[in-house]
């Protein structure tokens, strides 16, 4: 090692220092790498091999290399996959629309209220995900305030027409699942947007105004492009976990709103069809990675992130 460093550098250096410097980074990497090896790489490998096994829980599974399980799982569950992507995309877009103005206000205008608002955004994390989602059953229940409001304003008719609700009930509907997803992942949208908008130099907005850009043009040409890293981070942090989510669709949905996470969950724990569950997991993984890859490339944020 030391000899190499000398040869490459071209100047004689004390042997001890470069040698020690060389192993320090690896030593720092080691704990993390070990953790990932045991709790990420190994289970991934097991999952992969499980998807190629045949048998049942009573007689045991044998690795047969049955790749046919993939097209089989796909043809059986493609509606759930598409539905999951659709719900996640809706929740991501709704989250972006809700979070952007809030994050902008917090980052640029809130002044001394900034920290309090940040705490309020993070506050839901003090309660369990499950309990918060269960609370939405009460929020959306018939006869509740939200239900009353959508009925008196006639919004419920619009939701019914759009097919988001059925029979005038908010609960156990597409709408409820999307609302739950949006709510649960909103902080993950707000925080990266906040971080990006916080760094935005207000003088650039003044410069834009000075150079004949209206409010909308300033947003379009200056604010939004400069916040793109936050938009990309926020949408990924929302879209990816929302696609695989199985809590919201179970607690707030109906039999027509089953998402792929819920399918995998029941295949693993109830039906005990491990190979199909494993195969579906991989299909979902590949779909998300592909979509995210295309998205990041399209957003053109390589040099911004």
């Amino acid at each position: 090692m030391a000899n190499m460093a000398v040869a490459v550098g071209g100047t004689p250096a004390p042997a001890a220092r470069p040698t020690r410097r060389n192993w320090v980074p690896y030593a720092l990497l080691l704990p993390g790498l070990l953790w990932l090896a045991v709790f990420y790489a190994a289970p991934m490998f097991t999952l992969g091999s499980q998807s190629l096994q045949e048998g049942n829980v009573y007689d045991g599974y044998v690795l047969t290399g049955n790749v046919g399980i993939y097209p089989e799982a796909l043809s059986e569950y493609w509606p759930h996959l598409l539905r999951s992507l659709g719900y996640a995309a809706s929740a991501t877009i709704a989250g972006l629309v809700l979070a952007y103005p809030l994050a902008y206000y917090m980052a640029q205008k809130a002044g001394r209220w900034k920290n309090i608002m940040l705490i309020l955004v993070i506050a839901p994390f003090f309660t369990s995900f499950l309990i918060r989602t269960l609370a939405w059953r009460i929020i959306l229940s018939d006869g509740g305030v939200v239900s009353d409001i959508v009925h008196t304003t006639g919004l419920i008719n619009l939701l019914d027409i759009m097919g988001l609700t059925q029979g005038g009930t908010l609960l156990n509907s597409k709408f409820a699942v999307m609302a739950g997803l949006t709510y649960n992942f909103l902080p993950f949208m707000i925080l990266p947007l906040y971080a990006a908008l916080e760094r935005l130099d207000p003088r650039l907005m003044e410069a834009a105004r000075d150079l004949y850009a209206s409010g909308w043009e300033t947003f379009r040409h200056v604010i939004f492009p400069l916040s793109l890293p936050g938009v990309v981070a926020g949408t990924l942090l929302t879209f990816i976990p929302a696609t695989g989510d199985y809590i919201n669709s179970r607690l707030l949905g109906n039999t027509q709103t089953v998402m792929i996470g819920q399918v995998i969950d029941s295949l693993f724990l109830r039906v005990l069809d491990f190979p199909k569950a494993a195969a579906l997991s991989f299909i979902l993984l590949v779909m998300i990675v592909t979509l995210v890859g295309i998205y990041v490339r399209r957003a053109g944020t390589e040099e911004l992130v």
Binding site: R203, L204, A208, D210, Y212, A213, H221, V222, L226
Partner: peptide, 18 residues
């Protein structure tokens, strides 16, 4: 400001970095 035929050279330059 954006309707005024007045332009400014800012102290910090305020060039758009993107």
């Amino acid at each position: 400001a954006y309707r005024r035929n007045v332009n400014t050279v800012f102290q910090s330059y305020a060039l758009f970095p993107h």
